[in-house]
Amino acid sequence: MEVRTIKVFTTVDNINLHTQVVDMSMTYGQQFGPTYLDGADVTKIKPHNSHEGKTFYVLPNDDTLRVEAFEYYHTTDPSFLGRYMSALNHTKKWKYPQVNGLTSIKWADNNCYLATALLTLQQIELKFNPPALQDAYYRARAGEAANFCALILAYCNKTVGELGDVRETMSYLFQHANLDSCKRVLNVVCKTCGQQQTTLKGVEAVMYMGTLSYEQFKKGVQIPCTCGKQATKYLVQQESPFVMMSAPPAQYELKHGTFTCASEYTGNYQCGHYKHITSKETLYCIDGALLTKSSEYKGPITDVFYKENSYTTTIK
């Protein structure tokens, strides 16, 4: 009895394709271990004539594949690729409408935090270190965002349907971005203890939790000093293409032309909904596939993004 075979390709990165001759009487799992086709788990399936010449994702289970996976995804987590594939199996079914010149995501599976993050990423200057993220990001900007969303979920250790947080998501993504040249110098002034300067680099240099107003941050924000008295913390120097200011959701007025974009969060910790506000020729609110415009805006804002380049204080 002759062994019926077909020729397929296996890959971990969709760049390096490895030619395989597979036995049609055995499952993919018996031949390769966990195997995925377009995100779908085909591990328990036997090869079919229609699979001839198709590319299958496999887990990096030998040295060659491990090197290829690390170079593309910059992670050695053995569960990463499987999590990416199972997320992709959902995100490829989502709709990605162009809204006001940006790629958004039609609401499904509690994905409003991903839509808000995706919209924000198209408006701030950011370059990702893992080629996987950078490639998928370019495709997302062009309207094909399924891979990018699935990668975000995998890097953030999230599953489809789980509630997510924009600030946490951005923080994970910033860790995989090139923020080497970003720098922030802060000064804390206390009447009792004097003053202390701190220099922050990388992710810490672009994120701040405690106030939404970048102007206020430049002037000074009140913080408790270690001595128990009130101290003032203010920005001395900022070198970065953008800054992200966050605070627990509270009524906040966004003035046209003073910011790049913002995240609105309605609801409580267990259950809520994100919308995205962007400042173009007027203010726009993007909620999944829905767009509304207004000249002014007041609502429960939790993150505001500002364009920056270089700032030095005039406070002496």
Rank of each mutant, 00 (worst) to 15 (best):
M209T: 11
Y311L: 08
S86D: 11
G202T: 02
Y234S: 08
K218Y: 04
C112G: 01
T91C: 09
V67F: 15
D287E: 05
C271D: 07
M170L: 09
T159W: 08
N100P: 03
K46R: 13
E308I: 12
N110F: 03
V203G: 07
C285I: 11
A69S: 12
V21H: 09
V160W: 04
T302D: 00
A205R: 01
E52A: 13
K7N: 12
K92P: 03
E168K: 07
R66Q: 14
I124F: 06
G194L: 02
H18A: 12
Y274H: 00
V42F: 15
W94C: 02
I277Q: 03
S213L: 02
N100D: 13
F217Y: 06
P60R: 08
N89P: 10
I15C: 11
K183T: 10
T19W: 11
N89A: 11
N16V: 07
Q270I: 13
T314S: 11
V99D: 04
K298G: 06
K46H: 08
L212G: 01
S50A: 10
T159E: 13
P241W: 05
Y36F: 15
T103C: 07
S181C: 15
Q197H: 07
F148V: 05
Y252K: 05
E264C: 06
Q123E: 08
M209K: 13
Y96S: 02
H74E: 07
Y57L: 12
Q31G: 08
D62G: 11
V304D: 00
M170K: 02
L254W: 02
L102N: 03
S50D: 11
Y297C: 03
K293W: 09
A108Y: 05
A262Y: 00
L37F: 12
G210N: 01
K191L: 09
D41E: 07
H256P: 14
T103V: 08
N61Q: 12
E168F: 06
V12Q: 11
C182Y: 07
A150G: 06
V58E: 05
Y84V: 05
N16R: 08
Y234V: 11
C285E: 08
G194N: 05
T10H: 10
N61P: 10
K307L: 10
K46F: 13
K54R: 13
I152H: 03
M85G: 05
N147P: 11
V22W: 03
G228P: 01
S181D: 14
E204G: 13
N268Q: 11
L121H: 04
Y311T: 07
Y297W: 14
H90Q: 13
S263R: 00
N157H: 11
E264V: 08
K54C: 13
K127F: 08
D13H: 04
L88Y: 15
A136K: 04
T91A: 06
G228M: 03
T266I: 13
L59H: 15
S213M: 02
N89E: 13
S50P: 08
T120M: 06
I15Y: 07
V304N: 03
N129D: 12
V189R: 14
P131A: 05
Y265H: 00
F32V: 07
Y214K: 01
K307I: 11
T35M: 10
F242M: 01
D62C: 10
L37A: 12
K298P: 04
Q98S: 10
T116Y: 03
L179S: 01
Y84Q: 04
Q270K: 14
T302N: 00
S104W: 02
P130Q: 03
P249K: 00
M26F: 14
K201C: 13
Q251A: 14
V203Y: 15
N187R: 13
G82R: 11
K233F: 09
Q222G: 09
A40Q: 14
N100W: 03
K158G: 03
Q222P: 14
E125W: 01
S240L: 01
W94S: 04
M170N: 04
E52S: 12
S295E: 15
K201M: 14
T292F: 07
V243P: 00
G53W: 11
L65K: 15
G228Y: 02
P97E: 14
C261M: 01
T76Q: 08
R184H: 03
L151M: 09
P131K: 09
T192C: 11
E215F: 05
Q196W: 15
V188C: 12
T64L: 13
Y284W: 11
V3Q: 12
Y208H: 07
A69P: 06
C182S: 06
H256Q: 15
Q222S: 13
T169K: 01
I124W: 00
T226S: 12
A177G: 06
I286S: 01
A250H: 02
G288V: 02
A117D: 03
I105F: 04
N129F: 06
R184Q: 06
T232A: 06
R66N: 15
F217I: 13
V8M: 13
F128R: 03
N61R: 10
H176D: 03
L17E: 12
K44F: 11
L121I: 09
K307T: 07
Q20I: 15
G82P: 14
K275I: 06
A250P: 00
F217N: 01
K255P: 05
K106Q: 06
Y284R: 01
T278Q: 14
Y234G: 01
Q237F: 13
T292R: 07
V99C: 10
A40F: 11
A108N: 07
K255L: 09
F128M: 05
R139K: 11
G210K: 03
G161S: 05
V58A: 07
P47N: 05
G33M: 03
P224L: 14
Q98T: 13
V221G: 03
Y208K: 03
K106F: 06
L212I: 09
C285Y: 03
L121G: 02
V12D: 07
H51L: 06
Q197A: 07
D165P: 02
D62N: 12
A87I: 07
K316D: 10
V12R: 10
F56A: 07
T120E: 05
Y269Q: 08
T266W: 07
N147Q: 13
E162G: 05
T91Q: 03
K106C: 13
F80I: 04
G53L: 12
C193P: 03
Q197Y: 09
A108Q: 08
V188T: 12
T103S: 05
T292D: 08
N187G: 10
K201L: 14
P130H: 02
S295P: 10
A115Q: 07
E168Y: 07
A140L: 11
V22T: 11
K298F: 10
T76L: 13
E162W: 02
P300G: 05
L114V: 08
K233I: 15
T198Q: 12
Q123I: 04
T192D: 13
H74L: 13
L153T: 04
A154I: 02
E52D: 11
V203E: 07
L119Q: 02
I277V: 09
Y36P: 03
C182I: 00
W94R: 03
G33D: 05
V12F: 08
Q195R: 12
Y113E: 02
C149E: 03
G164A: 04
T159D: 11
N89S: 12
Q98G: 07
E144Q: 11
H276D: 02
K201Q: 11
D23H: 13
S79I: 10
C225T: 01
C271A: 15
V8E: 05
T260Q: 08
V42T: 11
A40Y: 14
P130F: 02
K54E: 13
C225M: 01
T258E: 15
K255R: 14
T91K: 04
T292Q: 13
L102G: 04
L37C: 12
A115T: 12
A108F: 04
A289L: 06
L163V: 09
P47L: 04
Y138I: 10
A115I: 05
G53C: 11
C156Q: 06
T192L: 12
G33R: 05
F217R: 01
S310I: 07
L283P: 00
A146I: 03
D287F: 00
S295M: 11
T314C: 05
E204K: 10
A231T: 03
L254K: 01
S279I: 00
K191W: 07
S79D: 10
N89H: 07
G267A: 06
V236T: 07
P34N: 11
L163D: 01
T169A: 07
K255Y: 08
L81M: 10
E264K: 01
P34Y: 08
G143T: 04
Y284K: 01
P249S: 01
T292C: 08
Y113M: 03
H273A: 01
V42R: 07
S295D: 10
T103M: 06
K316P: 09
M24F: 09
C149G: 00
V22Y: 05
Y234I: 12
S104I: 03
A145F: 02
T5L: 12
Y96E: 04
V188S: 07
S25R: 12
N157K: 14
E281D: 15
C182R: 04
K46Q: 15
T260S: 07
A40M: 12
G33E: 05
H18N: 07
E204R: 11
D287Q: 00
F305A: 00
V8Y: 05
T292I: 08
Y311D: 07
V185R: 07
R184N: 00
